[in-house]
Computed example of a mutant assay.
Amino acid sequence: MTAPLSTSAPPAAVPRQVRWLLRLHRPALCAWTVLVVGLAAALLWLWGPLTDASAAAWQQFDTDPACQGPAPCGYDQDAILRYKDVYQYTTLAVLAVPFLVAAWSGAALTGREMETGTARLAWTQGITPVRWLAARLGVPAVLVTAGTGLLVWLHHLAWSAGRGRIDSAEDWYSLTTFYAGGPLTVALALAGLAGGALLGLVLGRSLVALCGSVLTVAALWTAVHLALPHLWPTATVTSGRRAYPEHSGIKTGEGIITPDGAHVPVSSCVSDAQQACQALNDRRHATGFWVDYHPYAHYGPLHLVGAALLLALTAVLAVAAFRLVHRRTTGRRPARTRATGPKAAV
């Protein structure tokens, strides 16, 4: 015989549920704090002393005549390599945050409690299933937003400090740099949180939900990366046959210009750098070349549009999780059957 599910909860039950949630997931909370504080300290180190030392080394290398020849010169190469290593490791760590959040959400936040039956037990202890899920999504969402938002902001500051000062600094449109320094990563972490919680409720097995959550984040990231360049109007630059359009950013298309001014996309010979291409473009009757791309001015809009789509998807996943919990806890009662004959007394 199972205890009836609670249909209402006193106001004091919600703060108690939050405190219990933080106590239950104290190891994860401690690990999250260590991760955020450690990465923030590394990014601050990168933003200040490492960037200054690397920039000074590059300036010496570019201006010292002794460094322009084959003979070795006395510039600080270790500072440049140290900056490069710390930048690479911190960038990968920031990009790993959505996967870590999704894995924890699917495995520990809901999957383990559904697998062990503690979720249903909690629903009989003065907390409604909807408020139970709201606490499990709301509290981590606040912590994930604050922590991930701080990390991407510091990463963008660290990258901006080296822009134009360090010759080997990553371009803004580099795959890792672009995503690690903007709100898209924050939105992806929240989508991983909601998606992992939903998978944990659906599958009811922590390990399977963990794997599924990580794969879901990977699929979402791939879809966003493929669709993002087409979600905002591009800029177009053109050139004649003797030059190639100068641009710097995310290229979305390129091709030739016909005599009537039409822009025709082509996949090869978009310049006259080789004689074979020059002959081919003569047969195409090309008068110039064009490139569609996103300049640095589109950095913010691209991030905001992508983050808005991911947040909308996060809301859909959260609503689906609430509907699933509501359906499981307020399902139809089994229909009564009328027994007849001697078997009725059994």
Rank of each mutant, 00 (worst) to 15 (best):
A235M: 11
R327W: 02
M1H: 10
A93T: 05
L109R: 00
P10G: 15
G200R: 03
T337Q: 11
W221N: 06
P229W: 07
A276N: 13
A141C: 06
W290E: 07
R19M: 12
V202K: 07
C269M: 11
A320C: 09
H25D: 09
I166T: 05
P129V: 08
A135R: 00
Q88L: 15
P183S: 03
P65K: 04
R284Q: 12
G126T: 15
G341P: 08
L280H: 07
L317P: 03
E113Y: 03
L143P: 03
G331E: 10
R205G: 06
A141G: 05
V264G: 06
T128L: 06
W159M: 13
R283W: 06
V214W: 05
P295S: 07
V142P: 09
I127W: 02
R205S: 08
R16H: 10
G38S: 14
V266C: 07
L304Q: 06
A108S: 10
I166P: 02
L5S: 07
A79C: 08
A41N: 04
F61W: 12
T51E: 02
A40C: 04
V14T: 15
F99M: 05
L22R: 01
R16T: 10
H263D: 07
G147M: 01
R323A: 14
Y299N: 11
G164I: 13
Y244E: 14
R332M: 09
W58P: 02
R241E: 09
H25M: 08
V266L: 09
A262T: 11
I80V: 15
H230Y: 15
A191S: 11
A96K: 02
V202C: 04
V202A: 11
F289T: 09
G204H: 05
W132T: 05
Y293T: 09
A276W: 12
V18R: 03
L302N: 05
W232A: 03
L228N: 09
R136C: 03
A194P: 07
G181Q: 01
T216D: 00
D76C: 05
I256N: 05
T91G: 13
A146P: 06
A344N: 12
N281S: 11
